[in-house]
């Protein structure tokens, strides 16, 4: 199986329902873009830090969440410095940091399976024209096939290495796609043979 980004824990933040956490994240994000002031940003920052502390996460987790955007944020800070001074630049960069940390807090404290269960439960209330079973099938199948496709990709790379083609993207992609499409046809026949549709 593929592992999610969840960090194990049994805290208030972990136990909160995935839907509620997601809603809180969207509200926070909207508020920070509607009220562009430090009066909104500072309490939000404290709230997110408190969330990290309550969830038992460390500064290391917070830094790991920000690391991929560090260079872009540094560049934005420099550009903003030119347009709106230190305070404005600090505000924009800190707003990104707060939003990214808030989003990471949700991801780190919620299992992917909880979200999947949430989606499935939500689909039960969806109107009739929504192809509920098909959406559920697609989500389950993709999660099931990601490890298999990764293995297949490594296999094809090994085979092409023997031909000296392991860095040729076309020699890797064409077999991967054609083989997957053929597999897909067989899987579809197998599902239809069990008359799921």
């Amino acid at each position: 199986m593929i592992t999610d980004l969840y960090i194990f824990g049994d805290t208030v933040v972990h136990r909160l329902g995935p839907g509620k956490k997601l809603l809180a994240l969207l509200v926070l994000c909207s508020l920070l873009f509607i009220f562009e002031s430090w009066l909104a940003l500072l309490p939000a920052a404290l709230l997110v830090l408190a969330g990290f502390w309550l969830a038992g996460l460390s500064a290391h987790h917070a830094f790991a969440a920000l690391r991929p955007v560090l260079w872009i944020l540094a560049a934005i800070f420099l550009i903003q410095l030119f347009y709106s001074g230190v305070v404005g630049a600090g505000f924009v960069v800190m707003r990104f940091a707060v939003l990214i940390l808030a989003a990471s807090l949700v991801t780190l404290t919620t299992r992917t399976s909880e979200f999947v269960d949430g989606i499935m439960a939500g689909l039960r209330y969806a109107p009739r024209f929504v192809p509920r079973e098909k959406i559920a099938l697609a989500i389950a199948m993709t999660m099931r096939f990601i490890p298999r496709l990764r293995a297949q990709f490594d296999e094809i790379r090994e085979a092409q290495r023997a031909r000296g083609l392991e860095r040729n993207p076309i020699a890797l992609l064409v077999p991967l796609i054609v083989r997957t499409l053929k597999d897909a046809d067989e899987i579809a026949q197998a599902i239809e043979a069990r008359s799921v549709d």
């Binding site: 099938l137 989500i139 993709t142 096939f145 997957t180 046809d185 799921v196």
Partner: peptide, 14 residues
């Protein structure tokens, strides 16, 4: 069709 769903799912995996 089911076939389309399988194509969609497997391409997401690709």
């Amino acid at each position: 069709s089911i076939r389309d769903i399988v194509f969609i799912a497997l391409f997401a995996a690709i």
